[in-house]
Design a protein around this nucleic acid. Sequence first.
DNA 1: CGTGACTGAGTGGCTATTCATTCATAAGAA
DNA 2: TTCTTATGAATGAATAGCCACTCAGTCACG
Lengths: 204, 204
Amino acid sequence: MRSARSINSDRPVVTDKREAILRAAIRVFAHNGYFNSKVADIASEAGVADGTVYLYFKSKEEILHSIFDRSMEEAIAAGRKQLDQITDPREKLRRIALLHLERLGADRNLAVVFQVELRGSTKFMEEFSAAGFAEYLSLIRSTFEEGQHAGVFRPELNAKVVAKILFGALDEMATNWILSKRRYKLAPMADQVLDIFLNGVNAR
Amino acid sequence: MRSARSINSDRPVVTDKREAILRAAIRVFAHNGYFNSKVADIASEAGVADGTVYLYFKSKEEILHSIFDRSMEEAIAAGRKQLDQITDPREKLRRIALLHLERLGADRNLAVVFQVELRGSTKFMEEFSAAGFAEYLSLIRSTFEEGQHAGVFRPELNAKVVAKILFGALDEMATNWILSKRRYKLAPMADQVLDIFLNGVNAR
DNA sequence: CGTGACTGAGTGGCTATTCATTCATAAGAA
DNA sequence: TTCTTATGAATGAATAGCCACTCAGTCACG
């Protein structure tokens, strides 16, 4: 067995083993929690030796970072692309909410890492907050502000607060979905949230 | 120096050292995170020896549990008491939201433990979820249902989902407040949340 | 052969928990 | 009051176990 290489690359192509380790880590973190997960567990879940993990990642912590960075990047890129097609701010927010819950609903393990493991320390929270969450929140906020200018949302509302409310509501849907024993589809909750939310912020 | 004893008690009064350790733990957990906190740190912060911690708590984990249990108990008791005085469901929800944010806003360290450290593992989440969070969510839900029966809230809404939305919004206010560098009062956010929320769920 | 990806046993550092010992105070005796 | 003994809260050094990370060696391939 050998790892794939791209032509003209002087380093191992990052896709093969690296990807396997990342996927394994998501599963292991989701099951045991970040702090209770051993690097050895991740390695064996990925079908590689302990040491191999360190050929692709500097530390256990970097694995968690990579999971977050990659997923967030994907999500935001996918989001922006879809939003370009839409002009109505209400419809944009609906799409954001739907994408949010669809993405988490599609991979329970990833959702656990996002909803639970990434929240487990202020250190992570602050780092991640700086990176992705803040950008995401501000995407919601600016969309809302568009709507205010367009006259479809109540102009006296504080857009920052509104963004947090919507985000918080969606976030709670996701967390509850993870913790619930009962299995149901997450994505459809988006409409219920939006129904109430839009009713609350619509200009009358 | 001696530990306080209640009259006719054959065991050390639990308030003195135990309380000191609990308070110290809140500070230490808030600063370093649960998993990065050493029992020795808690002991020294509390001004006792390492071993003393184990005279009052079975394990490090039990300390975290105790923090949660005691705070949650206090909060729910205080909440129920205030709610008894109110009949209008809208006003009840407003009071719940206010109490929620006032309590967290009053003690930043405790808030960090609640918003961040307690979320750090599915294990904790599930245990705590079973105990206190679920009860809290259902308090919100049943209050909302009262309002539906009284005809002040839209009857077609799913009360469970509505409860999660309100909780999620408040929860996000608290988390953001903790992570924010800027200092502002948390409690007043309750009104902004309720404004939008009630607008969203009011029967027209 | 040469290369370098891969291996996995071993190391070092760390820390939750234990327990033999100390000592302040209470209780009893004179 | 003063001395003696008993009690158990408090201590903190020592233990025991864990686990992230390293590195000397293997091996498949070109």
